[in-house]
Design a protein around this nucleic acid. Structure first.
Length: 131
DNA sequence: TCATTGACAAAGG
DNA sequence: CCCTTTGCCAATG
């Protein structure tokens, strides 16, 4: 599997995340079958151009700690992601250090690699996704 | 080529 | 909880 296929696999998998649910980079990597490529899931999302068709709900992917990953000092990417999540109805809280976090016990989505279509994996209409 | 960078994760203290 | 260390590997310079 080359990198282009990897990126495509990431997008397809992220697209399966139901609304009002979030998962982690590492779990996406696991679902693809490459559990040690969590960092590259983030890269794939970074390369994602806005307004893709079909839409990819990139905002539903956060770090395994439950925190929205920083895009680096002085950037607003994390804030934008938080806005997209709250717009969906997901609660985003702010920790002491100003980190944006989400409660996995309430919003987490971590299916095993076989039970995806059963659980609720379906495709979403463009208007359902902010992107 | 070689070195550095990450939208990461798990384990240890 | 927090912080540090270690493993990871495509992309970037």
């Amino acid at each position: 599997m080359d990198s282009a296929e990897f990126h495509a696999a990431v997008y397809e998998t992220v697209r399966l995340i139901p609304p009002c649910r979030v998962t982690s980079y590492g779990h996406i990597a696991k679902l693809i079958g490459m559990p040690n490529h969590s960092r590259h899931v983030g890269q794939a999302l970074k390369f994602l151009s806005p307004n893709t068709n079909p839409p990819v709900p990139w905002h539903r992917v956060i770090g395994a700690s439950g925190a929205i990953s920083s895009r680096g000092p002085g950037t607003q990417g994390a804030q934008r992601q938080a806005e997209a999540l709250t717009a969906e109805g997901i609660e985003v809280s702010t920790g002491r250090t100003g980190d944006l976090r989400i409660d996995f016990s309430s919003w987490g989505w971590f299916p095993q690699p076989g039970e995806i279509t059963r659980e609720g994996g379906r495709e979403y209409e463009p208007e359902e996704v902010a992107s």
